[in-house]
Design a protein around this nucleic acid. Structure first.
Lengths: 186, 186
DNA sequence: TTACTCATGTAACAAGTTACATGATTTA
DNA sequence: TAAATCATGTAACTTGTTACATGAGTAA
């Protein structure tokens, strides 16, 4: 259909979206949003955000206002071309459907190779960590705008899926050694 | 408990695991495993794998055999320290529980801001892409060892969760405009 | 006036990417 | 013998990280 002709990285897309959808109009506000958010995976480091903004401006996806006030605040605005690129980026099915880098999934196969005790302990510890995270997110989600709320709610659903998966694994380990009381450890 | 004292990156952990758990004992085999796998998110580029192996050898988490044959194949072996570091890396609850970088989640909030038609189209296209991916994974999973199979099966469950989420969004969009036949487009 | 927040930016470094270079072995 | 595969590696580049530097405005 459209094809804006601009390929955006994940960070560039996230930056444009922060400006266009979440009304952050300075680099500093974008950085803070990244630092605060548990669902946007960037540290909000100056060394990433400022160069990315420069790249976006050079390609005219972003326009920079004149430095305002003593603090020299530069207001950011997404250009029409930038908006098209952002929508293309957000709606590209290939990228949206890709699995991403998930530390839980990467490790999931390894846990099955552990000895029984270590395995049970690991499932238990990770479940606790995830539950803690869910509790935090459920509190956090109340304070958010629509865009960020959708992300956080999806995070909660992912975490609940992980919890169910862990519970299943736990059960199957316990069942397979039930009544025998031994513990095969490496 | 243990604390091997070595921090591994995701790639380094994945490399150690390929050698230790999946019996890939050359750099080339590791690269191919990454290239082939839909669940490990690295391209298997030489420029990433060879330097990572060097780093691991320097820290004595990996030992390199003598070059064998005309092709100068170097066999890789995980040292006892390397094994401890690998287990620590795999079982660290903080890292295992973290959400990771997910292109779907990152975009999920944005789709809600689209006009009705574009929104329905996008949900539809992405659902199709995900379904295609599930079909592929379900075929692929039959050929795998335990470690990789667990990862791929988890991928399938993530993808099914996404499908359910998309179906819910689709339904709520359709419900909210049912019988009115209008389409609010930006 | 001291400390915190707002605001922008650079420098050194880490770690990934693609593309290329080299050469041995196997298979059609 | 030509092509594919096995095998290792480097070079140029991109893009992220932390840590630092600078300075204005605000609140204790």
């Amino acid at each position: 259909m459209q094809e804006s002709g601009y390929e955006l990285t994940e960070l560039e897309g996230a930056i444009l979206s922060e400006i266009y959808h979440r009304k952050r109009d300075t680099a500093f506000q974008i950085r803070r949003a990244f630092q605060v958010s548990p669902s946007l995976e960037w540290s909000g480091s100056a060394g990433a955000v400022y160069p990315a903004i420069k790249r976006l401006e050079k390609r005219e996806l972003l326009s920079l206002g004149e430095p305002e006030g003593g603090r020299k605040t530069v207001r950011l605005k997404v250009t029409p071309v930038g908006k098209a690129a952002l929508i293309d980026w957000a709606c590209d099915p290939m990228r949206a459907a890709s699995v991403g880098l998930d530390p839980f999934r990467l490790r999931s196969g390894i846990w099955g190779t552990l000895g029984r005790d270590k395995r049970l302990q690991t499932y238990h510890d990770i479940s606790a960590s995830i539950q803690e995270n869910i509790d935090f997110l459920q509190d956090y989600v109340k304070t958010l705008d629509d865009v960020e709320r959708a992300r956080v709610q999806l995070s909660i659903e992912y975490q609940n899926l992980r919890l169910r998966w862990l519970a299943l694994q736990l059960k199957s380990v316990k069942d397979s050694t039930a009544g025998r009381g031994d513990s095969a450890r490496k």
